[in-house]
């Protein structure tokens, strides 16, 4: 099977021929066209080691929901037992009021329009609104739930992926070396930042915004300069 070596693709480009046999799973940004796999967005094509999974990584501001993603959402409204949540996607997402740890009919989460939540995408399909949940399959919240205080930073889809990568992204490491702060990174391009002092929060938020195209060395310099300013 031809190995797609991190190829830069544009909409309409043919990435590779469909295999004669076997299963090939396509991630977002790729479609089958005649006997080929074609790109429908611009980005870099990636393939896993065994060649059974092909996907395209692009950089965009708008989020396309995928099951299993974690997102930072803003509550828009409440209809009956469900919150509608803006997750920067094509459609508003639905978050049941009972999908929170310890929530019961008598004990509902006290969230209003404008509040922030950290949730996972429980179901996402092209034809339906995405379904969110603030608990995992066993009913535990782990890191999910309402987010209080703090500010929201807007990042692109590729930067959000980088911030969630492991080992931790250079900017988060550099900041963590001298400051205490909390972040919740949403794959939908929204990052929540909070810390004890407003000064630190603003610093962390600005460092994250500015770091998208900086090399690890440049990030070190930037963070060093910002930290020196407040100390």
């Amino acid at each position: 099977m031809a190995n797609v070596e991190k190829k830069v693709c544009l909409p309409g480009d043919l990435v590779q021929k469909l295999p004669e046999e076997g299963v090939l799973r396509l991630g977002p940004g790729l479609e089958t066209r005649e006997q080929h796999v074609a790109a429908v967005k611009s980005g870099v094509a990636h393939q896993n080691k065994s060649g059974s999974l092909l996907w395209l990584e692009g950089r965009q501001k708008r989020y396309i929901p995928a099951e299993g993603d974690v997102v930072v959402g803003t509550i828009v409204d409440r209809y009956g037992e469900t919150f509608t949540v803006d997750i920067n996607g094509p459609l508003l997402a639905l978050l049941p009021q009972l999908a929170f740890e310890g929530a019961t009919r008598r004990n509902r989460p006290n969230l209003k329009s404008g509040d922030l939540v950290y949730a996972r995408v429980a179901a996402a399909s092209r034809d339906l609104e995405p379904q969110l949940s603030c608990v995992d399959n066993l009913g535990r919240a782990t890191v999910m739930g309402p987010l209080k205080d703090g500010i929201l930073v807007q990042v692109t889809s590729s930067q959000a992926r980088a911030l969630l990568a492991s080992p931790p992204a250079p900017v988060l490491q550099a900041l963590g070396a001298s400051l205490q702060y909390e972040v919740a990174v949403g794959q939908n391009g929204r990052v929540w930042v909070c810390s004890a002092s407003p000064r630190t929060t603003v610093l962390v938020a600005n460092a994250i915004s500015a770091s998208e195209f900086l090399s690890p060395l440049q990030i070190q310099t930037l963070v060093g300069r910002l930290v020196a300013q407040i100390q």
Binding site: S42, G58, Q60, I64
Partner: peptide, 8 residues
């Protein structure tokens, strides 16, 4: 294309 909208 820059918005990531799928194009033929």
């Amino acid at each position: 294309a820059s918005a990531g909208v799928p194009l033929r």
